[in-house]
Design a binder for these strands. Structure first.
Lengths: 265, 265
DNA sequence: GGGTATTTGTCCGTATGTATT
DNA sequence: AAATACATACGGACAAATACC
């Protein structure tokens, strides 16, 4: 039974205080100088302990102000298995806490449109050779002004030459891109596949979502298929894991019971 | 444009070398002493840079040996929207790389059975009052001997008193628990809901999966419903995000295209 | 097994910079 | 401007794990 290093012991002690509520979410931890006296350790050792908890997202440090227990936002719950075609932006999103929850509103930035050579993953999903030109439409999405997700949709360049010219416009397609493709090209969405992965965020995402540099995000690849089972669109959406959850319904299921988890033991 | 701190510059430089392949996966980084000369920085500054990459999972340090670029295992891809009843253990799992992929085999430990007071999340999903006694069956699951997931299923205690006594036995229910409940209690699974979340791993999970202390895991809550839409089982499965991905199919979709992502820019 | 060199881990001290109040 | 609190960067000393002879 080897003894744990001092900084880990301190981290464990603080973690317990956070979990049992001695240190409530949002409250300030003792300053480094105080902790130093409290545990009779050097400042660097205290900082190692704090860094450990900080990198796990339990606490966050604010220069000049202090160290605080992280407050977790009320998670957004997104239903992945909705019926195709009947969803518009932000629909399918619900919230864990229903107490006093006025209806929240999703919004998005006007799209950034680019023509790119398709990355390997995108090309494979669109079933085009890697490096093929594709149209990319990128949007920032918010819920009640809170950064929610970053979404990029990819369409085959061929759709443009076949007449779906509005895909190149840096403006919302009010009627919905799927509807528009149906009108212009006779394509309709008969199904889609979501591919859910997780990874650490990059610096763009870190800045947009205002999350610590090493926190993780969901990256969901949605491939939409037309009536001939050909891919018509690939949408990559990045969700920070601290505020997003997903629901998948299979078969005959009732309405979900929304419930907060109890604090981990 | 403020200049970045030295340790972050060093981290960035090393990150680039990892991404562009100068430092290949599995290869050893220069030692701290070498890096110190290379960047003309103190050992602690080098260590701060290394820690930054280490906490992001890009590199891992092995005491007495050196620092190495992380090798990522071939991800397991799990299909969440399979038809109920037709799945046994490990089915629905495929692999990204198909090159020379002999059929891999899933296995699991014999279950650990406990009777517990239901946590809030479990109770809400089973639709019983919090604190109600429930049967918990916990198993470690492997693929080709590689730790894959940790699974705990919860059943209402009432099932035992109604005769499904084998739920209390610490042994596999060969025929499958769902089938068994059908035979004994006339319950059959008409649907399920998966609730996908992510969080940082705890120390048990860290040890079992052999992952760094602050890496994240998927936590999937699967609630199974019977013909009357009543919950009959809640299964909580923990998957490390570094080796697991999920697929959700909706509507009419073709077979997936498995494809590795290209290295992030 | 033992001894030694190498490499990372822990812990301390100090000085200075930057952000906030 | 001054005080407070965290961030960066340097230095040193010893411990623990590993590899090699």
């Amino acid at each position: 039974m080897a003894e744990q290093p001092l900084y880990q012991q301190i981290a464990e002690d603080l973690r317990k205080q956070i979990h049992d509520g001695t240190l409530a979410p949002g409250s300030q931890l003792p300053t480094e100088t105080d902790l130093r006296k409290q545990y009779d350790a050097s400042r660097n050792t205290i900082r190692d302990a704090v860094k450990r908890l900080s990198s796990q997202g339990l606490i966050e440090t604010r220069p000049g102000r202090g160290t605080f227990v992280t407050t977790r936002p009320d998670p957004f719950v997104f239903v992945l298995t909705a019926q195709p075609g009947q969803l518009s932006v932000g629909e399918g999103v619900t919230y864990l806490s229903t107490v006093g929850a006025e209806k929240r509103k999703a919004s998005m930035s006007t799209p950034t449109v680019e023509v790119q050579a398709a990355r390997t993953v995108i090309a494979a999903r669109l079933r085009v050779p890697p490096g093929t030109q594709v149209v990319s439409r990128h949007q920032e999405r918010f819920i009640d002004g809170f950064p929610w997700s970053l979404q990029t949709s990819f369409y085959p360049m061929e759709f443009i030459t076949r007449g779906a010219i509005r895909l190149l416009m840096a403006e919302d397609i009010e009627v919905g891109a799927v509807q528009y493709l149906g009108d212009m090209l006779g394509l309709s969405q008969f199904g889609y596949r979501d591919w859910i992965t997780a990874r650490t965020c990059d610096s763009n995402e870190q800045a947009f979502f205002r999350i610590p540099h090493d926190s993780t995000v969901f990256e969901v690849f949605r491939t939409a298929f037309d009536q001939k089972k050909n891919p018509m669109r690939v949408t990559v959406t990045v969700f920070p894991t601290d505020r997003n959850q997903f629901i998948v319904n299979v078969g005959d299921v009732p309405e979900p019971e929304y419930s907060q988890d109890d604090p981990p033991a």
